[in-house]
Simulated assay, not measured.
Amino acid sequence: MAHRLLPVMLLLATAAAATACGGDAERASQVRGTARAEVAGIGYTSAQLLQALLQQPPGYRRAGEPDWGEYGSLKAIQNASRLQRETVLDKPRCGTGRPGGGVAGDVPAALVSFTGGSGLTATETLMGMSAGDAEKQVNARVPPGCLRFRSKVGSTWASHRVVEAPKGDIGEGSRTVGVATTGGGSRTRTWYVVFRGRHYLATITVFGPGATRADAERLARDALAQAERVLP
């Protein structure tokens, strides 16, 4: 199963899901994430990616334990996918497109979430991926017709406005997307940065009323520095 990176990452931020790892029930997915890397020659296992996650970025504290294993098995990704299925879009094509292809559910991955001041949530995800697949994600762009859309969860509608920066230079190439959401009597912002390194793809998502592009890109650069220190 392929997971669509853009919709899932936006829903992941909205869900602000807490993550945890450990225990026999999750060991199978962790082993499969390791095996997938070895068979595909990706170079990094989910266990290695776990060690390369951000530890304690300035201004944030960790929310629960990191999760690791196959991408599609991570709790936050499963929660986001469930929310995606429950969400109605006024432009259905904006939720069914596959910018840059898709992220296979069985790639090695690790994820950690943090909370900050003023209701901010930040999430980092590292995925073992070939250079070609990672480049597709970095080069993907939001379709022009999807820069404004509405969504409904239950009986509540929300309006979204998307902005996308030109291709950036974080790591071996990056993209930055922001979404301003109004609905349910509140306004929130989501910024996410996708960048690629050697044999991996990374995403940083910052969600909350005061989320900024500068903060998301700062965390992305911190995440790159951490990954470069840890990954061989």
Score class of each variant (00 low, 15 high):
Gly173Trp: 00
Thr203Lys: 05
Met1Val: 00
Val8Cys: 10
Arg32Leu: 13
Ala180Gly: 13
Gly41Gln: 11
Leu224Ile: 09
Val31Phe: 13
Arg187Met: 05
Ala165Pro: 01
Arg85Lys: 13
Ala80Val: 08
Glu65Ile: 03
Thr156Val: 15
Leu11Pro: 02
Ala52Asp: 07
Pro166Val: 04
Pro57Val: 07
Val206Cys: 06
Ala35Tyr: 05
Asp133Tyr: 11
Arg189Cys: 03
Ala18Asn: 13
Thr188Gly: 13
Gly145Val: 07
Gly128Tyr: 00
Ser174Gly: 04
Val138Gln: 01
Arg98Thr: 11
Leu10Lys: 08
Gln56Tyr: 01
Gly33Glu: 04
Gln137Cys: 02
Arg85Pro: 00
Gly168Trp: 04
Pro66Asn: 04
Asp222Tyr: 12
Leu224Gln: 14
Ala202His: 01
Ala2Trp: 10
Gly128Pro: 01
Glu228Ile: 04
Gly100Asn: 07
Val153Cys: 08
Gln55Cys: 09
Ser174His: 04
Thr212Met: 08
Gly154Met: 06
Tyr200Asp: 03
Ile170Glu: 03
Thr45Lys: 02
Ser155Tyr: 03
Ala225Glu: 14
Val103Met: 12
Val8Tyr: 04
Arg213Thr: 09
Gly23Lys: 05
Gly128Val: 02
Gly95Leu: 07
Gly22Tyr: 01
Gly184Ala: 07
Ala122Ser: 09
Ala37Asn: 06
Cys94Thr: 05
Thr181Ile: 15
Val177Trp: 03
Glu228Asp: 15
Gly183Thr: 09
Arg141Lys: 07
Tyr60Pro: 03
Ile77Tyr: 00
Ile77Val: 08
Lys167Phe: 06
Ala13Arg: 04
Val194Trp: 07
Pro99Gly: 12
Leu5Ser: 15
Glu172Ser: 12
Ala216Thr: 07
Arg93Tyr: 13
Val177Ala: 04
Ala35Leu: 12
Val39Gly: 06
Ala140Glu: 13
Thr115Asn: 14
Gly145Lys: 06
Arg27Met: 14
Glu65Ser: 12
Ala15Arg: 14
Gly116Gln: 01
Arg175Asp: 00
Gln48Val: 07
Leu49His: 02
Thr123Cys: 03
Ala180Val: 15
Gln137Pro: 02
Val153Phe: 14
Arg36Trp: 09
Gln226Tyr: 03
Arg4Ser: 15
Thr188Lys: 14
Val153Ala: 12
Ala76Asn: 00
Glu172Asn: 13
Pro58Val: 10
Val230Tyr: 03
Ala13Asp: 10
Gly119Ile: 10
Val179Met: 09
Pro57Arg: 03
Gly145Met: 06
Gly173Val: 00
Asp133Ala: 15
Ala202Lys: 01
Arg229Cys: 01
Gly132Ser: 07
Gly22Cys: 04
Arg141Gly: 02
Ala104Asn: 10
Leu5Glu: 07
Gly173Tyr: 00
Ala35Cys: 00
Gly33Asn: 00
Arg221Met: 11
Arg196Val: 05
Val194Ser: 06
Arg141Gln: 08
Gly100Gln: 09
Met127Glu: 11
Gly168Leu: 04
Ala37Pro: 04
Ala15Trp: 04
Ala180Lys: 15
